[in-house]
Design a protein around this nucleic acid. Sequence first.
DNA 1: GCAAAAGTGTTAGAACTACACCCATGC
DNA 2: GCATGGGTGTAGTTCTAACACTTTTGC
Lengths: 233, 233
Amino acid sequence: MQHYQDQDHFLVALDCIIFGFDGEELKLLLIKRDFEPERGNWSLMGGFLQKKESLDTAAGRILNNLTGIKDIFLEQLHAFGEVNRDPEERTISIAYYALIDVNSHDKELVKQHSASWFSIHDLPELIFDHQQMVEAALKRLRHKAAHEPVGFELLPDKFTLPQLQKLYESIYNTDLDKRNFRRRVLSMGVLVNTKEKQKNYSKKGAFLYKFDEDEYSKKLDNGDSTVFKPIKN
Amino acid sequence: MQHYQDQDHFLVALDCIIFGFDGEELKLLLIKRDFEPERGNWSLMGGFLQKKESLDTAAGRILNNLTGIKDIFLEQLHAFGEVNRDPEERTISIAYYALIDVNSHDKELVKQHSASWFSIHDLPELIFDHQQMVEAALKRLRHKAAHEPVGFELLPDKFTLPQLQKLYESIYNTDLDKRNFRRRVLSMGVLVNTKEKQKNYSKKGAFLYKFDEDEYSKKLDNGDSTVFKPIKN
DNA sequence: GCAAAAGTGTTAGAACTACACCCATGC
DNA sequence: GCATGGGTGTAGTTCTAACACTTTTGC
């Protein structure tokens, strides 16, 4: 009935929606495209799948090309396959989204790609269906951050509770009550107070916390599905 | 930097995880593969992407080939792209999952494909990475059914509350309290009692309800995010 | 009349929301 | 000493979970 050799073959691309947080706002890393079509326009970082790499590997490679970092949160979002989404040639694009600490990337590489960070609320026009990809990624991030502790991926190893709250406020574009927020994140029992204080931002200084990954997975293994309670809703 | 013409091209396949509910158990529709490799083994229904169709269209075509039905719940799940997932030739497979009323499909077509329904808790060995796809689909269904009213897709147009409860119980493989379940689904205000009674199953008979799609989307439009409250958790 | 499934309320505990003041420090 | 951001507790309300009996009807 079906024969492999008779079938059409396709270009397969990977596009990365790269989220970052600068302490104030949720941001997106975009590049200025340096090849046709759409040369010079803003675009997600992308690249083509190669014969001997898996999708996840390829997405990691592409992300690494731009940021110089490895081992970061990177998750498949959705495959986009409208017939004319790329006018040059039919291309199936598999979108991934990444969460990075905005200060951990290689500034040189970013400069080479003429990339820069944009506020999520003030994006330039994007090529092809990249706008749609960004919207889907934001939706996913909002959902994910409400149910699993991924927020930490966007912060440095040690962070303060006011920082964490600002992050959530910018993800959901809303204000949260300080006391309720603290009570909630602390009640999960996966944040540890390092007793160090960060003093550059405020006069009083705020305690630095770490996310206790081991404790979190231990709780998950124990079937404790209430470790992380929705922050929104 | 990147040139379309130098890039590798790939086979792109679509595989459908087809869920059904027979009133007792959650089921999966599988086919006996009639071509090499793995001829004669159990497999998800699949097919190759063609040049002039989008991913969603192709998935719908493939589903229609097996069941004869259109316009049903069909959603992209995940793209699977391990290098050796198909030993015959490198293939990127984009998995979709479908929810259908188990009695609405074309029995002839199903017979032609030597397809049959299996209990989700008693599946045969599947080819390639199809096992993994099924697990991902089940996880997604559980998540989705807890947050959005998709359960109805697996039932006839009119259904009774005991049926609906059985469905949820089989999706989550657990028992639910009858009174709490009813209170909850009715409190969403998206089920309407048709006042008809279904009398074939029990002596007393149970009222048939319909899902009020208009009312649901009206509530969503009004920003009422509490229309559908998680059934589990 | 009895077996089998449908239908119905209440209560205690937990979680959620809203809200206002003191603390520590740098200038 | 004052301005700035960090930190803390309570009370009313809502939501959740646990629980048992009556109703209808076919046989």
